[in-house]
Deep mutational scan, measured.
Amino acid sequence: MSGNGNAAATAEENSPKMRVIRVGTRKSQLARIQTDSVVATLKASYPGLQFEIIAMSTTGDKILDTALSKIGEKSLFTKELEHALEKNEVDLVVHSLKDLPTVLPPGFTIGAICKRENPHDAVVFHPKFVGKTLETLPEKSVVGTSSLRRAAQLQRKFPHLEFRSIRGNLNTRLRKLDEQQEFSAIILATAGLQRMGWHNRVGQILHPEECMYAVGQGALGVEVRAKDQDILDLVGVLHDPETLLRCIAERAFLRHLEGGCSVPVAVHTAMKDGQLYLTGGVWSLDGSDSIQETMQATIHVPAQHEDGPEDDPQLVGITARNIPRGPQLAAQNLGISLANLLLSKGAKNILDVARQLNDAH
């Protein structure tokens, strides 16, 4: 009898209710805020589980004197976190989706994509230029951005401005803007500013005609071990179906173009009346040469937790077992079709030249 009692006690200790789920994140304040929001949602869904947040620095956090596009290494903000995932030191990792490459290392998958916040870019102005827009900034004003995508589009749109690289986390960039006289304004992701509670610093939100956004911008991705079915089931509740389908289309477009950090590629997606609209573009580094096109596809946005595919093969690095396969494939095909259209119009040449120029500098 006593033996059975011990077995029952052991089973209770090993039951999922007692389990601590370890969540990996970057150390920056924004990353911690984003991770806290994901953990809060998981806690609400699984009140019996405990969650421990483990923060670590990544290569991208450490190399702050070089433009991201020049470092010449993929997975700048993800490699150390993936290493911890691989060694079973954490069970899942919360990322900004735009930091996750469209091809993940073997053994990993994006197990959830959370509801997207505003994906557009924002302009934050130096205190002396508050009330201005990019259009009304004085001639030769210097605007800071760490992104080739932003610089290429904005140089084309605002030729009277000069664009220079600015690195560091959000706090560091804002301090550089406010305390030094080098920059009249800087460009940042609206979602990051909003998550930090800095709505009052948003001086201008850039519309798609001015600057399309990065693939996955404004959404959070939760990376897990691809074979860890328990954790895949656990994080599945975080999937937002519309965000998922938009981001599958965007990531398929980028992957098929073979774009990345070192080339200016941008997108804009919208879901309306059962249609998914995808606009994508590529630019030369100075913005003088560009190709942009829009395509659409009829896609039914499923309700969360309709029964999805059981075999769960990944699409552009994403596993969404609780979302039907048909809409996911339709979104992926839309991204591939748009990429093929741009490639047929000469996108590869623009991107190759951009890559060579970026590598040469």
Rank of each mutant, 00 (worst) to 15 (best):
S344L: 01
T172P: 04
D228V: 04
S262I: 12
T78N: 10
V38T: 12
Y277F: 14
T136I: 14
F163I: 13
K345M: 14
T172K: 08
A270Y: 06
A214Y: 01
L104I: 13
P47T: 12
Q217F: 01
N340K: 12
G24M: 06
I187M: 08
A122Q: 06
M196P: 01
F108M: 01
S284Q: 15
S165N: 10
L338Q: 04
V263A: 15
D307S: 08
T109N: 06
L148K: 14
L137F: 07
S147Y: 01
R355W: 15
L351I: 08
L278G: 09
T35Y: 01
G280E: 01
G60F: 01
D178T: 07
F183I: 14
E310S: 05
G308K: 01
D312K: 01
E293H: 13
A270R: 13
Q217I: 03
I323F: 10
K62C: 06
C261P: 01
T78A: 07
G60H: 03
I113L: 13
M271I: 15
L232M: 11
C211G: 07
V20R: 12
A55R: 10
L188V: 01
K70I: 13
L154Q: 09
L254M: 09
R149C: 03
T269I: 01
H160I: 10
F51R: 01
L278R: 04
S147P: 01
P327S: 05
Q155I: 15
H83R: 13
L137Y: 04
D286V: 11
I113D: 04
P302G: 15
E80V: 07
A67V: 11
T66M: 10
E310M: 15
S69Q: 12
N322R: 13
W283A: 04
P127A: 09
L104V: 09
G287R: 07
P208M: 12
D61R: 01
Q356H: 13
F125D: 01
L244R: 03
V267F: 14
F77I: 04
L334N: 15
V38R: 03
A303N: 15
I299K: 05
E162I: 12
L357R: 14
G274A: 15
E117G: 11
D352K: 10
S96Y: 04
D311F: 03
T109E: 03
L206V: 07
L104D: 05
G326P: 11
S45Q: 14
P119A: 12
L174E: 04
M295N: 01
L188I: 03
V20F: 09
L206M: 14
S141A: 13
K79F: 05
I21R: 06
E306R: 12
S146M: 06
W198D: 08
R167W: 07
E139A: 13
G107H: 08
T58A: 09
A249Y: 01
E250C: 01
M56C: 04
E82L: 08
V222W: 01
A31R: 01
L329Q: 15
